[in-house]
């Protein structure tokens, strides 16, 4: 809660007041210095919300000097993450460790991530990689909603992997849990083994099944795994009949792009990067006191971290 209150304070009340509403214009440089020092102190103290400060820099870009804390040096956080991603790609795969960080205080439950993921991966009906659960807390009129986006956790100890009878799913050296669609026989054992309900099954259906025409959108190749598999009508070719899951938009990541859910998040709540890069934004974020992972007690060691 403390951080939630801080977000508007830094982004709007603090910086906004300094640049626009302060009648004592003569005092502005001093106050700006003071603010910069305050910001620097906050980051140094390890409690700064990277996204919040970055958002402040976006909103007030003209008034924000780039000589502030290091966090602003690369522009907004998406740009920083993309640069870090490009750096990480220069390393051998085994030296990368992709993780995702989701700031729950920034998530507004718009589900843009869910939809962009569906669009990006050309997902058919009832196949979904990233849902956003919501929970209502309190009693009317004091009601609030909590949102929790849930991609695949890409666990370091993934319970879905050992159960596959044919070894069709495994964890890559960079931490991404993948599925070989040609090997998977569709037994769905892995679906039962996932403690996060993160795997779904492709039943070979189309949204427009009972309409006069199934449009090209539905049969278009999915860029997943860089394989460009289509879903032609009348053919039971993979990924139909397979279990499917989030793969951190591997096809985008390996081409220097952030996952679709990260770039489309309107609140900037989702971060992605290489945990092995000690200077990366995600590395900074997971060290925060409000960092947590889902179902830690199961020892699945998820690669998706949440900021409470």
């Amino acid at each position: 809660m403390q951080n939630e209150n801080r977000t508007p304070h830094i982004g709007n009340a603090g910086i906004g007041n300094t640049t626009m509403n302060d009648p004592a214009n003569g005092a502005e440089p001093d106050r700006r210095k003071l603010l910069n020092r305050m910001l620097a102190g906050a980051v140094a103290g390890g409690i700064a919300m990277a996204g919040a400060t970055a958002r402040a820099s976006e909103v007030n870009a003209p008034a924000m000097p780039l000589d502030g804390p290091q966090i602003f040096a690369g522009g907004n956080h998406a740009e920083r993450m993309r640069k870090e991603l490009l750096e990480a790609l220069k390393k051998p795969i085994s030296e990368r460790k992709w993780i995702m960080v989701i700031d729950l205080q920034k998530c507004v439950g718009c589900k843009a991530c869910t939809i962009s993921c569906v669009a990006e991966n050309s997902l058919p009906p009832s196949v979904v990689y990233r849902i956003v659960t919501q929970e209502e807390v309190g009693k009317f009129p004091d009601v609030r909603r909590r949102f929790l986006p849930r991609p695949c956790m890409h666990c370091d100890n993934p319970p879905c992997v050992p159960v596959c009878p044919v070894g069709a799913t495994w964890k890559r050296a960079d931490g991404i849990v993948v599925i070989d669609y040609d090997q998977c026989m569709g037994c769905r054992y892995c679906i039962t083994a996932c403690p996060y309900n993160a795997r779904t099954f492709d039943f070979g259906e189309y949204y427009e099944e009972k309409t006069p025409k199934i449009t090209a959108y539905e049969t278009a190749p999915s860029p997943e795994y860089g394989q460009n598999r289509g879903r032609p009508v009348g053919k039971d070719t993979s990924p139909k009949g397979n279990t499917r899951k989030c793969q951190f938009c591997m096809h985008r990541v390996e081409n220097g792009m952030l996952p679709a859910c990260v770039t489309t998040c309107i609140g900037g709540a989702t971060y992605f990067g290489d945990l092995n890069d000690k200077t990366s934004l995600v590395h900074e974020l997971v060290a925060q006191a409000r960092g947590m992972r889902l179902k830690e007690e199961l020892k699945t060691e998820p690669s998706v971290y949440y900021l409470k």
């Binding site: 050992p162 159960v163 596959c164 009878p165 044919v166 070894g167 090997q183 998977c184 026989m185 569709g186 037994c187 769905r188 054992y189 099954f201 492709d202 039971d236 993979s238 139909k240 009949g241 397979n242 279990t243």
Partner: peptide, 22 residues
């Protein structure tokens, strides 16, 4: 019940013995 029923032979050709199903 299998999604790709004709791939059942894979349990014999490429078994994964960490799986109780295999």
């Amino acid at each position: 019940d299998l999604g790709h029923e004709w791939r059942f032979y894979k349990v014999f050709t490429s078994p994964h013995f960490s799986s109780m199903m295999a």
